[in-house]
Design a protein around this nucleic acid. Structure first.
Lengths: 245, 245
DNA sequence: CCTATTTAGTGTAAAATTGACACCAGCCCT
DNA sequence: AGGGCTGGTGTCAATTTTACACTAAATAGG
């Protein structure tokens, strides 16, 4: 019987990359650290995992402790384990990401966070530790996700216009989309509920407001699965895609 | 200044999911453990990470030590950290996967492995620890990869027929593909080098042999990138895909 | 040697999807 | 009333995807 104590042990952390969307800008939630190392610098909200805690639970807990944000779905992206990534010694970190509606949450910095704020991703150049690298890895994941399935509704207010939704996609994909084609496609997915309401108080023609239809989304995922995986009964049909990144 | 020793520490391991393809069957490389826990049971080739070792290096080293396989590209998939996933105490594990040509490598079990063998994935039901779960996660990743870009050549002998290639895709995607459409598409990618050689000694019309063209593959990846991300100069073009899983 | 068996190899047409593109509508402001 | 701004809409060409069936070339076995 082996003894676990023979083996090298290290502490490990979770780091959260929380994306939000506001004022046409894709943002990420950062904390200002009140603790060395990297005291007073901006970093991802992350901290050490406790003894009796799953990684997923730890990510949730840490996020709540540092920023006040609760009840978000976090998806694991990657684990970073370079020997020297932490100045005080070896620390492995597991990165998680999520998308949330900025307006749904109040930020409340506590624990080692002396501040918690949304930052425009486009403007960021540097973060504490290897957090910039982690951010970029998660951003890449987000880009891939968004072209596989309709994510992104999480980032908008409950009632939104098609133009807002388009801007969101453009921010995530870092590209420009054709208005007519975008609308055609997004509407054809039947994931939007037309609220028959209009924007008010804007200095231009008011836009129609929509809501995300969660029920149809589940349906979509279910079908989508069968869709791409099943051929016809026998001789068949599927192909792997040719271009697309 | 914080002291890392205050925090909970645990050992951590890497586990490798190595896919191979042989006799029309998608296989995974397993070891029989010669050490408790799960002595004499089949498991993924994995072991503890050392103090001065990156995760990626550890994965490579462990794979070589247990199975004799060297020089493979390993991609990180996921980290599993359930509190009770290891019967002797907490152990976090980072899962890696790779694709290799079975015939290119000689298996040589050593260290805690008393055997190393290829197993058909379709027949597997159970593995030591949570390794079955890990295997499934990596299999899913493989399926996703294969529809994004032409992986899979790694799994075939240096000279292969289009039918072999098709069977490989069918095994990975767990579906049936149309012969004519498959050939049309794969040939149009210009990734195959026609060797102008024929199969010999088969009891049917001999098939043409092909080779994978690595140079064109690099080209393909480079172009592919620009391809899907760029719109035209201004008003634009890109869309997120609608179906496809 | 003739036949049966097995896998290799090939083309086309219909359907669906994608991509490019330009103008009028409706609100506020001055 | 007009200017400024964003919302909203349709079509056509090009490309991609899918479905589908027969002949060719080798060996095996009588």
């Amino acid at each position: 019987m082996i003894e676990l104590d023979k083996f090298f042990k290290s502490p490990f952390t979770v780091d959260n990359v929380i994306f939000g969307f506001d004022e046409g800008d894709l943002k990420v939630l950062l904390i200002k650290r009140g603790e060395e190392p990297f005291k007073d610098e901006w970093a991802l909200p992350g901290y050490f995992v406790n003894e009796n805690e799953d990684l997923d639970s730890a990510a949730k807990r840490v996020l709540a402790e540092l920023t006040g944000i609760k009840n978000v779905y976090l998806e694991q992206v990657n684990t970073f384990g370079a020997v020297d990534r932490h100045p005080l010694g070896r620390v492995i970190t597991v990165a998680y990401y999520s998308l949330i509606k900025i307006s749904d949450y109040n930020l409340h910095a506590s624990s080692i966070a002396i501040n918690a704020k949304w930052h425009s991703i486009a403007k960021l150049k540097y973060l504490a530790f290897d957090h910039f690298k982690i951010l970029m890895a998660c951003f890449q994941r987000l880009k891939n996700r968004v072209r596989e399935r309709p994510v992104g509704f999480e980032l908008l207010p409950p009632k939104f216009t098609l133009t807002q939704l388009q801007h969101l996609y453009e921010a995530i994909l870092e590209t420009n989309l054709d208005k007519r084609n975008f609308r055609k496609k997004i509407l054809s997915m039947n994931l939007l509920l037309d609220l028959n309401e209009m924007q008010e108080g804007v200095a231009h023609r008011p836009a129609r407001l929509y809501q995300f239809d969660k029920m149809k989304y589940e349906q979509f995922l279910a079908e989508g699965y069968v869709f791409d995986l099943s051929g016809s009964k026998n001789k068949s049909s599927k192909k792997k895609s040719k271009k697309s990144v």
